[in-house]
């Protein structure tokens, strides 16, 4: 875990420690504090969960905090690598937008099996997402790349996909004419974090073979507008819009609407998030008339759940990689 801000380091350390029963591990948290005189020191904590009544075994979890002060770029990797446990998979969790190369990033990436970022933290996704795509193209099978924001999208992708499992609605998939993706912003709408919504667009484009038609343009309401060509050449308008909604984390997708026209019928496939209690509703409209609605629980977006899910996977997530690549092409 690499962090340049104490609050990030603490948050990540806490998440990993909450996971220790599911993923016993040695967590090495590197906190790079550039402001202080050059120095590296390590602090070790070990936690053991004692056996409980139902016969679960004792699980121990170690956490090592490496504080690297000053310009420690050259020396951080040399402090971290000896602390790795041989033969255990190494996940490199980088908070904030990662640099593309250079120490200690390159050295740490060299020992990692999986590289984890969270694009919800990216202040400039237009720069950071393409650089993740570049890192991914350098991986060449040596490590897999993942984005916790992509993991947050999973319930949305599941719901959208499930529409087209229905034989009657399946043909609409080839005639999508418009997509709207809403994502949450705070009240004043100052900082917008559209990465998650953008990844969704990238996913659709990669799965359906869409290509860019025009360059990305800002749309009127502070959102983004894509003009895209379907695989048959027809035009698809994709709109990504910030929306203020209570009870959502900034940047989280709040609703998705997919429109398709076929044989004179306008179909709308809608998934919306409802805040309290958390659930999703999925709705299908034909020519404006509601045909189907259902409500399903929405899994917790807690970061500890997300990282827990990622830690069980080694190797790369091809669907994510292709979605990211498609997104970079579109923008």
């Amino acid at each position: 875990m690499y962090a340049e801000r104490e609050v990030h380091a603490r948050r990540a350390a806490k998440s990993i420690s909450e996971l220790s029963l599911r993923h016993p591990s040695r967590a090495i948290v590197v906190l790079a504090d550039r402001g202080a005189p050059a120095d590296v020191e390590a602090h070790i904590e070990m936690h053991c969960h004692l056996p409980v009544a139902d016969g679960a075994t004792q699980v121990c979890y170690e956490q090592i905090l490496v504080r690297a002060r000053g310009d420690s770029r050259q020396r951080v990797a040399s402090a971290v690598i000896p602390l790795l446990v041989p033969d255990l998979p190494v996940f490199l969790w980088w908070t904030g937008a990662p640099p593309v190369s250079g120490p200690p990033f390159g050295d740490l990436l060299g020992v990692a099996d999986r590289f984890v970022v969270d694009s919800s933290d990216f202040a400039r996704p237009d720069i950071a997402l393409p650089s993740i795509a570049r890192i991914n193209s350098q991986a060449k099978g040596l490590f897999g790349v993942t984005d916790l924001n992509w993991t947050r999208l999973t319930p949305w992708r599941e719901m959208i996909t499930s529409f087209f499992d229905v034989p009657a609605w399946r043909p609409f998939l080839d005639s999508v004419s418009g997509v709207r993706v809403g994502f949450a912003v705070d009240m004043d709408g100052r900082d917008i974090h559209p990465s998650q919504a953008l990844l969704f667009v990238g996913w659709l484009a990669s799965r359906l073979g869409w290509r860019p038609l025009d360059a990305l343009a800002s749309s009127e309401a502070g959102g983004l507008l894509f003009a895209i060509a379907r695989s048959d050449g027809a035009r698809v308008m994709v709109r990504v819009r910030p929306r203020f909604e209570r009870g959502l984390e900034e940047g989280d997708v709040s609703g998705i609407r997919v429109q398709a026209e076929r044989e004179g019928q306008l179909a709308e496939f809608v998934v919306k998030r409802q805040p309290d209690p958390r659930h999703q509703t999925t709705t299908v409209l034909m020519n404006g008339e509601k045909r189907w609605e259902r409500t399903v629980p929405l899994p917790s977006p807690a970061i500890v759940e997300l990282i827990g899910e990622e830690l069980s996977i080694l190797g790369s997530d091809r669907t994510y990689e292709e979605s990211l690549a498609a997104l970079v092409r579109l923008s």
Partner: peptide, 8 residues
């Protein structure tokens, strides 16, 4: 030259 366990 290089670094071993954080030391030059």
């Amino acid at each position: 030259r290089g670094f071993i366990e954080g030391v030059a």
